[in-house]
Structures are given as C-alpha cells and as structure tokens.
Design a protein around this nucleic acid. Structure first.
Lengths: 213, 213
DNA sequence: ATTAATTTATATGGATACATATGGCAACTA
DNA sequence: TAGTTGCCATATGTATCCATATAAATTAAT
C-alpha cells in the first residue's frame, strides 16, 4: 500500500511542474488537507520532502511557498547541469552498449519527427527522452538521479520552451552531433558539445526570467 | 527559534557520520522520541528528511535503516564527486579573488602542518577545509551545496581515513599542485589534477569496503 | 488623521491518540 | 516432528488536539 504522503508528493510536483502552482504561491496545510481529503500529517510530510528537494521553501512559522530562483541561482544550476550532462556524454561514450545506442537513436528520431512538423510540446518531450537516454547510457545511477532532479528544477522555468523560432532546428542538429560523438566513442567531443548545448539554453534564461516577472 | 526536527537532523547526521549509527542499523521512532525527549512527529520529519537525503532508506512498514551503499553505488558516487570537484577547481581558477586565494592558502598550510607531524585526524579536517575553500571559490552555491552533500555521504565510509602510510605526503603534494594550477588560473590543469586526486581516493575504496564487512 | 500599541484571529509546530499492517510465536494438525 | 494457521505484540501510518508565534485589525492617543 502506497503511503498517502508519497502520492501527495507526486501530485504537488505535478501541480508545480504544470504551472498550476506558480513560484511564490503559498501552500496552506489546512487547505491542502481539505483538497486532498487527508489529515495535515501526510500533507506536512509531503511539504517537508519537497522542501528538501528544493522545490519549496519555508520560513519559520510562515509556511511553505513555491521556491523562486533568482538569476544567479538559475545560472548556478545551469552550470552544474551542463557539467553533469557533459559528464554523462563522456561516460556514455566510454560504456555504450548496443541496446543503449538503440534507445538514443530512437529518441533522436522522435526529436527529428517533432522538429519537422514544428510540434513544440512534442519536441520538448522528445528532448527529455533524448537526455534521459544518455543519462541511462552513462551507467552511473547516482549521476542519473542527480540529473533528473536538476531537470525537474529547471523545467519549472521552462513553461514556454522552444518558443524562439528556429531553435528547434538548431537543437536537433546539436543533438545529432552529440549522438555522433557518443557513437564514435569520442568522449571529449561529446562532453564539450553537450556542455555547449546546455549553455546555449542557459543563455536564454535572462529573457525567460523577464517573461516570468 | 530553530525547529526541533532541524536539530534532530543534525544530531542524527552526526551519529551516522561518527559511526555511532552504522549502515544497516534500524532507527525506531519511539526509541528516538524517548532518547531526544520529543514526540514522534519531529522524529518522523527528521527521518523523512534523511531518507530524501539518501542517508537512510525505508521499506514499507519496516521503518528506517541507515543506508548501505554497495561497491557500485560508492563508485558511482565517487565518479560524480570527482567530476564536480574538478568543476569547482575550474571555476575557482576563472573566478579567483584575493580573499578566496588567502583562504585556500591558509587551509593548505593546515594540511602541511598536519602532514608534517603525521596527525591523521588533523589532516582529515584540514583536507575538508581545503576542499571547502575551493568549493567556495567556485562562487557557485548550487555546486557547493551538492558537494557538501556528497562529502557527507562519502565521509560515512571514511571512518579510517589516511590509514595507509605515506598517503598523507602524497595527498599534500597533490593539494599543492592543484592550488598552484588554480592560482595560475589554469582551469584545465586544476580540473584534471583534482579529478585524479579524487579518483585515487576512489581507488582505495575496495579495500575500505572489505574493511567494513 | 495618522501612527502605535494591544488584542484577536489564524496558521504552523509539536504531542498524543487511534488504526492498521507486519512479524513472531504458539498451538494444533498431518 | 514439521508445517501451517491464527492470534498477539509491536511499530508504522494517520488523525486530531493543544500551544505558540505571527500577522492583521481595531482602538486609542498624539
């Protein structure tokens, strides 16, 4: 039997990622208890967990709010994300198996299909699949965990992904180059290509931040 | 006023790091409530937090136990630690301020002093200070947080650090080279020197694991 | 009229009471 | 004697209750 708090964590994450709960929104325990038809205890545990996860923050006696990252924090986050994504590419190059290669190729095809018809949400999904495929191929579970946590954090700030015209095409080409480097077991290139790819996204942050304010 | 659960988290961490609570040990909520003279509620929140942190793990209805990392998990952890430590060195090279330089130098002196008299616990402490100084110098708060969490995890498995004779000297020399690279703003060298330094420690893990079993 | 202080309301933090699932032990049967 | 079943004990999971701190509102004083 799943614990109520575990389900709550998932639900609240969904609401945050979907944008239903926006950065700065306050979460009141009593309200949530009514909404989800449980007592305050599991609500509190869920909030606690999300605070540890970094999605919420609390001030003493002032409850939890959806965490707002300022420009520096987002930049720091992106720097680490870029480094770890690059690392995943390097490891994937060194450890690539046939089955992982197939999965990466499949996700790359998804990216291509979505880019061709300019399906923005479709590309966003395929993009995540592509990155996830590389994470898996790194064969480092700790790294994979860290990256999925970071992804989650970043996605909150990606409510309008790829809205810039033409970015889809460029992103796809970068993905293809990264894949080629991995398949050629050229870890060094794969690493730096991915880091550049990530940093380009990071460079788009300032405009994204402005759009949020 | 600090929350009871926050203090508990620190205390439990201490007990885990100090080896008082060994991997595999069970934590019973009622016991802990009596020991720390609080109710089960803050105990549960603390446990919850440590589970999210990865220090404990729970099985349904079976409570929390101190998490045991197997060889692969430890290896994965070290790989990520090495990469991020290297990244910190690179960033420190790029962003070094005079004040950070002083702090790094000071911690390096501590290392030297401890190494000269073969003060093993002293060196362990100075070592942490050295790494922390570099983390700070990276000017990336997210990275610093991640590294301190990873440090915490690794330290559990470092109950007998530097017991290998001669390792102190070698470690010190590596520290000196890393510092020189950072001071020379040679990010590339600093990065790889630190990664090698970390990986050497990781290579000692198998014997460490054997000692634990 | 504006500001400061006091009071009141409300939400969080902690304690306790209650429910339920799991594991062990014992008894009974084959 | 060994295995299975059922009961009981114990620890986790959930609900509710109480205390306290913070914030808001109202009143009084300048």
């Amino acid at each position: 039997m799943a614990r109520a708090s575990d389900k709550l964590i998932e639900q609240l994450k969904q609401e945050i990622f979907s944008g239903l709960l926006k950065p700065g929104d306050q979460l009141e325990e009593a309200d949530l208890a009514v909404r989800f038809n449980v007592s305050r205890t599991p609500i509190r545990e869920a909030i606690r967990s999300l605070v540890d996860n970094g999605l919420l923050e609390t001030r003493s006696r002032k409850g939890a709010i959806v965490r707002v990252l300022n420009a520096k924090e987002l930049n720091d986050l992106f720097e680490v994300a870029a480094e770890l994504e690059g690392m995943a590419c390097r490891l994937a190059s060194e450890r690539l198996t046939q089955s992982n290669k197939k999965i990466i190729k499949a996700s790359l095809d998804l990216c291509q299909a979505a880019a061709q018809v300019e399906d923005i949400p479709g590309y966003a999904e395929a993009n995540l699949a592509f990155h996830a495929a590389i994470h898996e191929a790194s064969e480092n579970d700790w790294l994979t965990d860290q990256l999925s946590q970071i992804q989650a954090r970043i996605n909150v700030y990606r409510l309008m992904p790829y809205e810039i015209v033409g970015r889809l095409e460029k992103s796809l080409v970068e993905h293809q180059k990264i894949s080629e480097a991995i398949f050629a077991k050229d870890g060094l290139s794969a690493n730096s290509l991915m880091r550049d790819h990530m940093m380009l996204q990071g460079a788009r942050l300032p405009s994204l931040l402005r759009a949020l304010v």
